[in-house]
Design a protein around this nucleic acid. Structure first.
Length: 484
RNA sequence: GGCCCCGUCGUCUAGCGGUUAGGACGUCGGCCUCUCACGCCGAUAACACGAGUUCGAUUCUCGUCGGGGUCACCA
């Protein structure tokens, strides 16, 4: 139907910089980005900042930062430029004005002098008579003569018969009767374009071939198609995604700071942890749940995109994020280190010993569900002496345990290779000779070494800490235990 | 209310006429174990309802009910 084939795929993400980037936006962007990656398409970022009241430069910055952190880099747009610049709609006003004037000249749009107040009054009057009535602009100014001295908005002259149809990549054929359409506003009194006008003009001028966005835009699509036709342009393909609802089933909004990318980043989720959860929301690949970035690029397709809305599940999200963090093939050691560094810094550990960090991370991988936890789990390795948990101290660093710790220190002093196996062997020999059980000694030793009653396996901890630190901590633990 | 869309365990989902309706999260048991975890085993729980079509419907059609989106000089 639409021109395809030889034409290069060009897709876009067009955020309005009026708040944090939330997970719903990210999912649309992710699907867009993935499809561009796999099809060799171009991914364009366009900032829809035509609403001066709501847009802010800080929000632009936040959106760009979040996208880059997630690894959803755009090929054209702010910072990287491109052949269709500028990519900020606020800098394209002349273009919208020119196109609007063209529509007016051709009689496809007209100036409307009704004020907001007048319209609001009409709407209220109607509602007063019949609360369920649907107010539509009555077309008051459709054929009104120009009033050079009055402020005006520009309205589109919508058809009243027939229907506007399109075939959605996800939802299939969607037909909307034009009788349900009204003369929607294209340009405000202040000369700024409204969303449908600006998006349509830019999508065409920027050669966008495939528009992917949330289902909340389905109602805008007929209006935009009407505009494409009015300009004599060919509409792109459209693909709408089902809604991502909050846990409670409400629409996600930018005011919901608790579902913003920034928030999950602060909570210690990695980019792939976030993307992996989001990609499975509305898309599936059989029973597979966990994917690498490259797998996603290779496997993503539109055949398995669902239509049904869904509710966001915090616990499932946490689990997917954990799964990504846990597996070394998904988060290699070097990446893990880079990710966890800021969280260690937040705990006051600014320059952790690199070797120690490398040795310690394998032991905490399977128990840290996120990077906040990881930094906590790693903490005792780098703090000397380790922070001592009061309860653990009282329970295990008792006078009775003191001689055991001293003895253990002596035993380990003679171990030359500080690796888990030799350590365990030496430990067990000593237990056998002294008639002690591992259970009796393990917890006091753990508290001495880590300051806590829960940690990775003892021998792994000692191996990671190394001989010097291990002996030092056992000695100190024995001292504390003796003092009771 | 108009227009549009959707409907499989509590949640994300597999299924594309014949299945003991599968997986994952969660929850509840158990195993493993030096602690905490990881892991493993098991249990729990779903085709909204009603008519058709068909030898046979979770699957196709229609209706009902339910849910959602949208109807701005926001995007």
């Amino acid at each position: 139907m639409l021109t395809a084939g030889a034409m290069t795929l060009r897709m876009r993400f067009a955020p309005s910089p009026s708040g944090y980037l939330h997970v719903g936006n990210v999912r649309s962007t992710l699907f867009t980005w993935l499809w561009c990656q796999s099809q060799g398409g171009r991914f364009i970022l366009r900032v829809e900042d035509t609403d001066q009241e709501r847009s802010s430069i800080d929000s632009v910055r936040a959106v760009l930062d979040d996208l880059q952190w997630l690894g959803l880099q755009w090929d054209e747009g702010p910072e990287v430029g491109g052949p269709y610049a500028p990519y900020f709609q606020s800098e394209r006003r002349a273009i919208y004005k020119q196109h609007t004037e063209q529509l007016i000249r051709e009689g496809k749009a007209y100036r409307c002098y009704c004020t907001k107040e007048e319209l609001d009054a009409q709407r209220e009057a109607l509602k007063a008579k019949n609360p369920k009535a649907n107010f539509v602009y009555p077309g008051t100014c459709r054929d009104r003569k120009d009033q050079p001295d009055l402020p005006f908005v520009v309205r589109f002259r919508s058809p009243t018969t027939g229907s506007t149809d399109f075939t959605d990549r996800v939802f299939g054929f969607i037909s909307t009767p034009n009788s349900a359409q009204q003369d929607f506003v294209l340009m405000r009194t202040d000369g700024y374009p409204l969303y449908n006008l600006a998006a349509t003009i830019d999508d065409h001028l920027m050669d966008i071939t495939f528009v992917v966005r949330g289902r909340d835009h389905i109602g805008n699509t007929p209006q935009q198609i009407l505009l494409y036709r009015a300009f004599g342009w060919e509409p792109p393909e459209f693909g709408h995604l089902p809604m991502m609802l909050s846990q409670k089933g409400e629409k996600l909004s930018k005011r919901n700071a608790d579902v913003s990318v920034k928030d999950y980043r602060d909570r210690g989720y990695t980019p792939m942890g976030i993307l992996n959860y989001l990609v499975r929301f509305g898309w599936s690949f059989g029973d597979q749940e966990i994917f690498s970035r490259q797998q996603l690029i290779d496997l993503f397709n539109w055949d398995h995109v669902n239509k049904g809305d869904g509710k966001f599940d915090e616990r499932k999200f946490a689990d997917v994020a954990f799964e990504q963090l846990k597996r070394p093939e998904l988060t290699p050691l070097d990446e893990y280190i880079a990710y966890v560094r800021p969280f260690l810094a937040a705990r006051g550990i600014e320059n952790p010993n690199e070797d120690l960090l490398r040795r310690a991370i394998p032991g905490i991988r399977e128990r840290a569900r996120n990077l906040v936890d990881a930094a906590f789990d790693l903490d005792f390795y780098f703090r000397d002496p380790p922070e001592l948990d009061e309860k653990a101290k009282q329970k295990f660093l008792t006078p009775a345990a003191a001689p055991h710790l001293s003895a253990l220190r002596g035993v380990l002093e003679s171990v030359s290779e500080f690796a888990p196996e030799p350590l365990e062997a030496a430990f067990k020999r000593w237990l056998e000779a002294s008639g002690l059980s591992l259970k009796e000694v393990a917890q006091p030793a753990r508290v001495a070494l880590t300051g806590r009653s829960a940690s990775p396996p003892l021998f792994d901890v000692m191996a990671a800490l190394g001989k010097e630190l291990s002996l030092e901590r056992l000695a100190r633990g024995a001292e504390i235990a003796r003092a009771g």
